[in-house]
Design a protein around this nucleic acid. Sequence first.
DNA 1: GTCTATATCGGGATAGAC
DNA 2: GTCTATCCCGATATAGAC
Lengths: 227, 227
Amino acid sequence: MSEIDTRQRILDTAEALFAEQGLESTTMRQITGAAEVNLAAINYHFGSKEELIREVFRRRLTWLNRQRLQQLETLQAEAAGKPLKPSRILEVFFGAALKMAADTEGGGRTFMRLLGRTYTKPTEFVRSFLADEYAAVTTRFMTALIQALPGVPKEEILWRFHFMLGAVSYAISGTDALRIMGADALDDTDTDALYARLMSFMIGGLRAPLPTLQSPSAKRTRIKNAA
Amino acid sequence: MSEIDTRQRILDTAEALFAEQGLESTTMRQITGAAEVNLAAINYHFGSKEELIREVFRRRLTWLNRQRLQQLETLQAEAAGKPLKPSRILEVFFGAALKMAADTEGGGRTFMRLLGRTYTKPTEFVRSFLADEYAAVTTRFMTALIQALPGVPKEEILWRFHFMLGAVSYAISGTDALRIMGADALDDTDTDALYARLMSFMIGGLRAPLPTLQSPSAKRTRIKNAA
DNA sequence: GTCTATATCGGGATAGAC
DNA sequence: GTCTATCCCGATATAGAC
């Protein structure tokens, strides 16, 4: 078995097991066992388990974010200075993610599930290199969104972007949460339908009337009545 | 130190460490060390680490879901047979969660972060007892929502509920994802503002026009153009 | 490059004195 | 109920033969 093959097999197998069990719970014995390579191969090819994790994320994220930047630039070039429609920006950013998540054979779906789960509970070394991978792309998209929504405060846009990240993450991560909630019957294999559903939900949320933020003195009353 | 005190101290400490590090990465040595009790105390009081985890979730979830059911019943009694406003139902379900998440001193905030992270990647034993805890509450809320939205297909409601779970989960789980995305400046301590923001976003998403689901033959074209 | 064997560490759990 | 000491296991990592 050649060097390249072994590396790829380890990466693919690790990705699948990480997505299924989490980074910490997956052992090098499981990975090398399932990949049918020797236990020592991970340390030989990557140096350590941490470096393997880094590489699993890196190889997909650089590609994904390059796609996003290119498509955003295309969009901006076509607009020729005119303001972009917010929905177009979201379609580029989240569409790229969902397109990758729709790729069941190439492992894209597996990876996106892993990525979504990693956002909320990253260990420090994971958080730091994810931030590096995203640094270029997010500033570009956020400024584009802010320009596309002149009436909306920047803080509000950031929050809604955060909410959308959560929605997309759950949408991609399968139906575990829904199964906990007692609904096992949903079909999450129709990725086109999922994309359509998600986009209309998110556009609706992005376009929603701004919340009326009350003064501090009224705080207690509001939450109590609402909850 | 009395029995009760030790039990509580273990539960509180475990909850905090689980939220911070995850269930698997947190060791019994860390818990007992931070709680300043003996290493053997966990096995004595709970039997095993798994049983401790179960109890950490159980004590908060039963209370939370009882609140939700009571408030839903109140709402339905007040309506006296008339259809409920969807937003009122969401306010009860998610308001209860956010109210608990606003409790920084009593550990509610810590717990809700733990819960949100657990939804997406539950081990089998966790998934099964979470499903038990939620069994009563979700069927009630889903049927209420379906009745409140007569024009909307049941499947669509379930999906949008799923998206909302994701948004709420991310909103509660802190700003890790946003920090990865390069925005560290958001204030997530103003829980009332967060509640208002989240509710208007979710109502907007729930009220959004239904997606136009295309025929299977048109699938490839749509996603390609969109992404 | 690949393998076996092993070093070193830290995990959960328990026995038995107090 | 609490503590110490210990068992047993499986983790990452590496040394050294092939």
